[in-house]
């Protein structure tokens, strides 16, 4: 079966809305690197407020809904990606984290070419790094310069990667009728907004587009 690499943001959005049980309904395996498992389970298990969420995620891993994948060389490759991403700007800013870099490293080191990610920066590094650079420069109150050539070279490494969000997953699930057990109602509208409010980087305009597309 083909695979999709997932980062923690997409898993959290889905889990918060009790949507992880949809994953086995698709003809793909959803995989995470070991570092993402640590972020999803090990750390929140130690916090009263999030212990139950971590237990549910651990259960999802134990049941194979999410699979933890160890890839040889992923740490070293992630370090290299981090070094490149985090030196794009002068002065330097650490735009990417180890967990996100490990997801990107998995994409480079395996034949998986789809990433499920809800947060914005990782997605833009892969899809439109210049737009990310412009965004960061516009938000800084200080002068910030981006090495555009280096940025394009980094993006180019992932040119065959498709980036999906949990919202794309839900849109496909909706169209396949996988949400029908929730009864009548504005299923698509409700689920897209639920994911947005859980942290998925989708705009209201995009949600409107989805509602037009799939009405």
């Amino acid at each position: 079966m083909s695979q999709i690499v997932c980062d923690s943001s997409s898993i959290i959005s889905l889990s918060e809305n009790c949507l992880l049980n949809l994953l086995p309904r698709f003809k793909v395996d959803f995989v995470v690197p070991r570092s993402v498992e640590k972020e999803l389970v090990d750390k929140p298990l130690r916090v009263d407020e999030f212990e139950f969420k971590a237990l549910r995620l651990r259960e999802a891993i134990n049941e194979g809904i999410i699979q933890v994948k160890d890839v040889p060389g992923v740490h070293k490759r992630a370090e290299q990606i981090l070094a490149e991403a985090n030196s794009l700007f002068t002065p330097r800013i650490k735009i990417l984290h180890e967990g996100e870099a490990e997801c990107m490293a998995m994409l480079e080191l395996t034949d998986v070419n789809t990433l499920l990610v809800d947060e914005r920066t990782t997605r833009l590094i892969i899809e439109d790094i210049i737009a990310l650079g412009n965004f960061i420069q516009s938000r800084a109150s200080f002068k910030l310069r981006m090495d555009r050539e280096k940025a394009m070279a980094l993006q180019e490494r992932f040119s065959d990667v498709t980036v999906l969000r949990s919202t794309e997953l839900i849109a496909v699930a909706y169209e396949k009728g996988l949400l029908n057990n929730l009864g009548d109602g504005h299923l698509l509208h409700a689920s897209l907004y639920a994911l947005k409010y859980s942290g998925c980087a989708i705009t209201k305009g995009e949600i409107k587009e989805y509602l037009q597309l799939l009405k």
Binding site: I95, E98, E119, T121, R139
Partner: peptide
């Protein structure tokens, strides 16, 4: 920090 452009995890 996220609004400035850092990734969520960063």
């Amino acid at each position: 920090a996220y609004a400035m452009g850092l990734s969520l995890d960063s």
